[in-house]
């Protein structure tokens, strides 16, 4: 029950950002999507929870099957997208916490809206905050936290719905190199829990630390796709030169 993607394509206007993308991510892997900016990796990630709609192709994520054609029915797709997103969490580069809610409020909002009793949500939130090392920050405002702390809150928020898959869009791009390790620790700890993680980044060092599998994109194509051994032994010249610079 991982992620299977077959022939995904996406164009914005006349620019083809993703061309016939196919890959397979087994359950429980931590996969890094690497590539220069503009390679299409963020767009690809955002398709996995349907924040972007592919033009063509098929996709199987968290046991839900999707078949895209250019003239899709956007209403029924929206409904499916909501259901999918409850099983696929996402963490953003800019954290995107809601600033007018406390840390605890940020965590319990979505589950409570979706019908989880408040007490249950609160105790789950406290557990998760402890897991990311921020139990004493439950009543703090997001703006009073450092970047690394905010990102850990965002990860805890994404875990509130117990997702099968967790997506990270450049989770460390806004963080100090020293703070990046806090996120590395959390991702490593999560990978032991059997959750499937997909991480977009352009930082090779960060990628090496967390990846069990790597996909390298260039210009909307997958160039390299393999296990984390590929960092030591790249198969393609393009990936080798990307790792070197």
């Amino acid at each position: 029950m991982g992620i299977v993607v077959e022939g995904l394509s996406k164009a914005f206007g006349s620019t083809q950002v993703l061309k016939d993308i196919s890959f397979n991510i087994p359950r429980g892997e931590t996969t890094v999507l690497l590539g220069a900016s503009g390679a299409g990796k963020s767009t690809l990630l955002r398709m996995l929870n349907l924040l972007e709609t592919p033009d063509q192709g098929t996709m199987k994520v968290a046991d839900m099957d999707f078949n895209f054609t250019r003239d899709h029915d956007s209403k029924s797709l929206n409904k499916q997208a909501c259901a999918l997103r409850r099983k696929v969490g996402m963490v953003f580069q800019q954290y995107n916490l809601w600033p007018h809610m406390t840390v605890l409020g940020n965590l319990i909002e979505a589950p409570v809206v979706q019908g989880m009793p408040k007490e249950q949500a609160t105790s789950k939130a406290k557990e998760l905050l402890e897991r990311v090392g921020l139990s004493e920050k439950a009543d703090a405002w997001p703006s009073s936290l450092s970047g690394g702390q905010q990102q850990r809150v965002a990860i805890a928020r994404a875990l509130m719905l117990s997702p099968d898959v967790l997506l990270f869009d450049e989770p460390t791009a806004a963080l100090d190199p020293a703070i990046t390790n806090q996120v590395v620790e959390v991702i490593k700890e999560l990978s032991q829990s059997g959750i499937t993680q997909v991480v977009v980044t352009h930082e090779v060092e960060f990628a090496r630390k967390i990846a069990s599998k790597v996909i390298y994109l260039e210009d909307g194509h997958i160039v390299e796709d393999g296990s984390s051994d590929r960092f030591a032994n790249p198969e393609t010249e393009a990936f080798r030169s990307y790792l070197e610079h």
Partner: peptide, 13 residues
């Protein structure tokens, strides 16, 4: 910010 919308949508709202 658009990010606050996106965070809500990404949580299935």
């Amino acid at each position: 910010s658009a990010g606050e919308w996106e965070a809500a949508m990404a949580l299935g709202m």
